[in-house]
Amino acid sequence: MIEALRKKAEELLKNKTVDVVYGYGEGSVPERTRPVFITKPEDVNKLTWNKYCVYNLTTYLKKQESRKLGKPAIVVKGCDAKTITVLIKESQIKREDIYIIGVTCTGIGDPPATKCKACDVNTPLIYDELIGEKIGNKEFSFEERYAELDEYEKLSEQEKWDFWQKQFEKCIKCYACSSICPLCFCDRCIVDKNQPQWIDPSAHPRGNLSWNVTRAYHLAGRCINCEECQRVCPADIPLNLLNKKLAKETEKNFKYRSGYNVDDELAMATYKEDDNQDFIK
């Protein structure tokens, strides 16, 4: 697979289809990889592929420093590829402006990431070139997809509050969660606006609650469950539970799953006249 990947990258750079390949390279320790930006055909040997390729490299599509390198080819796993669908729908990129190198994937991380347990995109849904044997994508039921939420939804109101207060208390307000998120692309985040100051910048329980709720909510119907935010959180807050909860509600209420189909209308940018309103008096 690595050979095929390097060959493809070399070809794309040689014939100038792209100026740069965003891919995975060897990391500082064997259990890590790191993002690499290959601009010369002779450097393609720096590309690698293994179970430590955790990064969702599409986040570099929002960064001026990587975009400066020119038209990219980007190595994506199935989950990462969903981001591209959303970015296209949200007018952040044009399909023809990027070249997608999809890799088939059976799971990453050690121990394996939660997202891989019910993965239905082992073969990416969108790509220009596929590296690796095509894998038949599995199907999961609604319940299976959101199974990890069960134990938390079962908690009483007070238990839920206490659980999340304990989690949010750890937040140091570094905003790594939103910096890494490929879909958090606002040039100026609401937390950086102080006229008025909607979210207290301090990392105290009040500011942390409004930040964490807002971050999650701004990804409602958009998050594609790459789990990058949770991976990078230095305070080890299970952010993905919040994302998952929103994904579940979006699917339940609007039959929408983010990143699966480029023809679907974005859940939060549209409406139906008969949307659920059983909670409205």
Partner: peptide
């Protein structure tokens, strides 16, 4: 209404009645 449909359960999930 769309937003409330997801925001309300989010708050409930965080322990707000």
């Amino acid at each position: 209404r769309r937003r409330w449909n997801v925001f309300r359960p989010l708050l409930e999930f965080c322990g707000i009645n």
